[in-house]
Each structure stands twice: as structure tokens, then as C-alpha cells.
Computed example of a mutant assay.
Amino acid sequence: MELNLNMAAILVAVVVNFFIGFIWYTPLFGKVWGREMGYDSNTKPDPKVMVKGMIFMVIGNFFFAWVLAHNIAAWNFVPGVAEMGPISNALSSAFFLWLGFYFPGHLGATVWEQKSWKLFFIDAGYSLLSLIVVSLILTHWK
């Protein structure tokens, strides 16, 4: 059995996910997120730190999309998955990965690190949205 991965879809998912993160953590929730993280809104971040952060985010987004593509491709070998259709497959993959891996991590960080529940919902919401969007890209672009 061979896992067929579409590298173009993975790369597009990386770029789309980068922009989702930018929109989520800048105009949508940037001020609230920064305040909940304890950042001073009057201080501009060092440009070198910003560039380094963006580079590592792109690298992380690549691994995120690449591993998710493997996961989705592996599910194609499960009997009955083909009948689900690509949207159901994408939403199921995204939701169950989020519920099993992201949600517990965000929940634990919120409680153990005494972070705010606003921060929990911002970060957990981003994780779920990015999983859904990237899953939809990967399941529809064969």
C-alpha cells in the first residue's frame, strides 16, 4: 500500500495556514491575545525576533500539513471511509485530531500554567480552524 501525498496541496496549505495565523493573531484577536499573554501593547517587537518567529512558523506549518496529509491518506485504507466523502473525511480528521491532541494540550496549559480562559479559547479556536482548513485543502486537492 502506498500513501499518495500531493506536495502542491501541502505547500498551499502551509501558506494558507500562515495567513490564517496572521489574521487570527493580529486583526481578530491580537490585542486580546497580547493582553492575556502579558505583552505591553506599546512595545514593538524586535524585527529579528519577528523574522525568526515567522521562519519557524512556516517550518512548523509544513510539518503540520505534511503529517496531516499522511494521517488523512492513511485513513483512506479504512473500510467505509471512501463513502464518507471528502468534506466528512476532512471534518472528522480535523475534529478528532483537535479533540485528542490539541484540546487536551490547551486545557492542560491553561490549568497548569494558570493562563486565562480567554487565551484558551483563542488558541484552541485557532488550532481547530487551522486543522479544518488544512484538512479541507488536503482532502479536496488530490
Rank of each mutant, 00 (worst) to 15 (best):
H70G: 15
N71R: 11
N71W: 11
N71K: 13
N71A: 14
I72C: 10
I72Y: 07
I72V: 09
I72F: 06
A73M: 03
A73G: 02
A73T: 00
A73E: 02
A73Q: 07
A74K: 07
A74R: 11
A74C: 08
W75R: 13
W75I: 10
W75T: 10
W75H: 11
N76P: 08
N76Q: 14
N76G: 15
N76F: 10
N76V: 05
N76T: 13
F77S: 03
F77Q: 04
F77K: 01
F77P: 01
V78F: 04
P79D: 07
P79Y: 07
P79E: 10
P79L: 02
P79N: 07
P79Q: 07
P79K: 10
P79M: 03
G80I: 02
G80Y: 07
G80F: 03
G80K: 04
V81K: 08
V81P: 01
V81R: 01
V81S: 07
V81I: 13
A82H: 05
A82K: 12
A82I: 08
A82G: 13
A82L: 06
E83D: 14
E83A: 13
E83S: 13
E83Q: 13
E83P: 03
M84V: 08
M84S: 03
M84P: 00
G85Q: 05
G85C: 05
P86W: 15
P86D: 15
P86A: 15
I87Q: 12
I87C: 05
I87K: 12
I87W: 14
I87Y: 13
I87H: 09
I87A: 12
I87N: 12
S88F: 08
S88A: 14
S88C: 06
S88K: 14
S88W: 09
N89H: 15
N89K: 15
N89Y: 09
A90M: 06
A90L: 01
A90T: 02
A90Q: 04
L91I: 03
L91K: 05
S92Y: 10
S92M: 14
S92V: 14
S92P: 01
S92T: 14
S93L: 02
S93K: 05
S93N: 13
S93W: 02
A94V: 06
A94Q: 06
A94D: 06
A94Y: 04
A94I: 05
F95D: 00
F95I: 03
F95P: 04
F95K: 00
F95H: 01
F96T: 08
F96P: 03
F96L: 09
F96Q: 00
F96K: 02
F96C: 04
W98I: 02
W98R: 03
W98H: 04
W98Y: 10
W98P: 00
W98C: 01
L99T: 08
L99R: 03
L99I: 09
L99P: 04
L99N: 07
G100F: 09
G100R: 05
G100Y: 02
G100Q: 08
G100D: 03
F101H: 08
Y102Q: 11
Y102C: 11
Y102E: 09
Y102T: 11
F103P: 00
F103W: 11
F103E: 03
